[in-house]
Amino acid sequence: MYDCFRTIYEPSGLTVTSTERPGGITVLTLVGDIDAATVGTLDEALATGERLVVDLSRVAFLSCAGVRSLLQANDRTELAVVLGGHAVTRSLEATGADLVLKVHPGVGAALAGLGPEPGREA
């Protein structure tokens, strides 16, 4: 498991890595904190595709602003979310977003959950 705690020597913020997968799926791997200062980075990343897997396994903190962004993206895209640590899971559960979003324990499960591209046979 990844260590989700930063030391005073590590910068705060959020980084996003985007990987294209078969079936028109974009996997977004996020590292850092999602809060009021970084939610714009999340919003930009969520606007990059129509079929998204959002990997939160290396996110240490997820604010309500981040949850809102995920819910808004879920309304306009096919979205699967990979759960992160306790703080991320707790944010999703406390807001009820875990009942609305398609949440998965890992990227493989999220990819399988999205299934084949609409209009194409498996």
Score class of each variant (00 low, 15 high):
Ser18Glu: 13
Gly115Val: 11
Glu44Pro: 03
Thr29Leu: 00
Ala94Ser: 14
Gly96Cys: 09
Val39Tyr: 03
Ala112Leu: 14
Glu78Gln: 15
Val39Gly: 08
Ala112Gln: 15
Gly85Glu: 09
Leu79Arg: 01
Leu56Gln: 03
Leu99Asn: 09
Ala112Pro: 03
Tyr9Thr: 11
Arg21Ile: 01
Lys102Arg: 15
Glu20Lys: 12
Ala65Trp: 02
Asn74Pro: 01
Val107Gln: 03
Thr38Pro: 03
Asp75Trp: 01
Glu117Gln: 15
Thr17Phe: 00
Ala122Ser: 09
Thr7Asn: 10
His104Gln: 08
Tyr2Arg: 11
Thr89Met: 14
His104Glu: 07
Gly115Lys: 10
Ser91Met: 12
Leu14Trp: 02
Ile34Glu: 04
Thr48Tyr: 05
Gly119Ser: 06
Asp3Pro: 00
Val39Asp: 06
Asp35Glu: 06
Leu99Ser: 13
Arg68Tyr: 02
Ala60Val: 00
Ala73Asn: 07
Thr77Cys: 13
Ala65Phe: 07
Glu10Gly: 07
Pro105Trp: 08
Thr29Phe: 00
Gly40Cys: 06
Val16Trp: 06
Leu46Glu: 07
Ala60Asn: 10
Asp35Phe: 02
Asp75Ala: 15
Thr38Met: 04
Asp35Ile: 04
His104Leu: 07
Leu101Ser: 06
Thr19Gly: 00
Arg6Asn: 12
Glu121Cys: 00
Val88Tyr: 04
Thr77Ala: 14
Ala45Phe: 09
Arg58His: 11
Ala109Glu: 15
Ile8Thr: 14
Glu117Asn: 04
Leu62Trp: 03
Gly13Val: 07
Val107Ile: 14
Pro22Glu: 11
Gly13His: 05
Glu50Ile: 01
Ala97Pro: 04
Gly13Phe: 06
Leu52Lys: 09
Val67Gln: 05
Gly49Asn: 12
Ala47Tyr: 05
Ala94Gly: 03
Gly84Ile: 11
Ser12Thr: 14
Gly66Trp: 02
Thr89Glu: 15
Thr95His: 03
Glu10Ile: 13
Leu99Asp: 12
Glu121Ile: 04
Thr77Tyr: 00
Thr29Gln: 05
Thr29Asp: 00
Pro118Tyr: 08
Pro105Asp: 12
Asp3Leu: 12
Asp55Ala: 07
Leu92Trp: 08
Val107Trp: 01
Ser18Asp: 02
Leu111Phe: 07
Gly66Tyr: 02
Leu14Ile: 05
Tyr2Gly: 00
Asp35Ser: 05
Thr38Gly: 05
Pro11Lys: 12
Lys102Thr: 12
Gly84Leu: 08
Ser12Val: 13
Ser69Val: 01
Ala80Arg: 01
Ile25Trp: 04
Gly49Leu: 11
Leu70Asp: 06
Val27Arg: 02
Ile34Arg: 02
Gly106Thr: 15
